[in-house]
Simulated scan of single mutants.
Amino acid sequence: MRTDVISVSSPLDTAFFTLLNGSHERLLDRPLVPDVPSGAEAASWLYHDAPFAVLAQDAADDPVFIYANNAAQRLFAYSWEEFRGLPSRLSAPVADRSARDRLMAEAMGNGYVEGYRGLRESGAGRRFWIEDVTIWNLTETDGTVRGQAAIIRSWSDA
């Protein structure tokens, strides 16, 4: 499996949205953003208005976040600028990072993982559970893996 690092210059980057949504649809056989036209309108809805959190990391050896929609920014208490480039391992408390690493490796090997629940920590130090999470590989149509993404459908206080 070939991997290649990707960056996202803007939360409304339609090329990145195409990769994010296209990977989700190819792997899970359903669109990430249902009932919203593709392109700029869908990218804007996902970033500004989605009722669920979406995060993405690159494919580096120590992955960093490359995308976080507004819901994810509120949940993790980081701005767009703070999220971009933040090592994604820092989203989990130290004691839970090995479990997170195993989960990410499982998703890399299988293409995706559904139904995950795990403990996370915000930039402000608040701990919370992420629930009903799907993690999938950001994969080009030629099979090149550009990173991984997650949709967090619900969360609760720890």
Rank of each mutant, 00 (worst) to 15 (best):
W45L: 09
W45P: 12
W45I: 10
W45V: 09
W45M: 05
L46M: 09
Y47R: 15
Y47S: 10
Y47G: 08
Y47D: 14
Y47P: 12
Y47K: 10
H48S: 13
H48E: 15
D49P: 03
D49M: 03
A50I: 07
A50H: 05
A50Y: 04
A50F: 08
P51I: 02
F52M: 03
A53H: 04
A53Y: 03
A53C: 08
V54K: 05
L55Y: 01
L55I: 11
Q57R: 15
Q57G: 10
D58Q: 06
D58F: 06
A59T: 06
A59N: 09
A59I: 03
A60W: 01
A60S: 14
D61K: 09
D61H: 07
D62Y: 05
D62Q: 10
F65Y: 13
I66M: 04
A68E: 00
A68V: 00
N69T: 06
N69H: 09
N69F: 03
N69S: 08
N70H: 13
N70E: 15
A71L: 06
A71M: 12
A72P: 09
A72H: 06
Q73E: 11
Q73C: 11
R74W: 03
R74T: 13
L75F: 01
L75Q: 01
L75G: 01
F76I: 05
A77D: 12
A77I: 00
A77Y: 02
Y78L: 04
S79G: 00
W80E: 04
E81S: 10
E81G: 00
E81Q: 06
E82H: 07
E82P: 05
F83I: 04
R84Q: 02
G85T: 05
L86E: 10
L86M: 14
P87C: 08
S88H: 09
S88D: 12
R89W: 14
R89D: 12
L90G: 05
L90Q: 14
S91A: 12
S91P: 02
S91I: 08
S91Q: 11
A92H: 07
P93Y: 03
A95F: 02
A95S: 09
A95N: 07
D96S: 13
R97M: 06
S98F: 09
S98T: 12
A99D: 15
A99Y: 07
R100A: 10
D101Y: 04
D101L: 13
R102W: 11
R102S: 14
L103F: 11
M104D: 08
M104E: 09
A105W: 07
A105M: 10
A105R: 15
E106I: 00
E106H: 09
M108R: 14
M108K: 07
M108V: 04
G109Y: 00
N110V: 07
G111I: 11
G111Y: 08
Y112W: 12
Y112E: 08
V113N: 11
V113A: 12
E114K: 15
G115N: 11
G115S: 07
Y116S: 05
Y116P: 06
R117T: 14
G118M: 07
G118A: 14
L119A: 08
L119N: 08
L119I: 12
S122M: 02
G123H: 04
A124E: 15
A124K: 14
A124L: 10
G125I: 13
G125M: 12
G125P: 11
F128S: 11
F128Y: 15
W129Q: 10
W129H: 14
W129K: 08
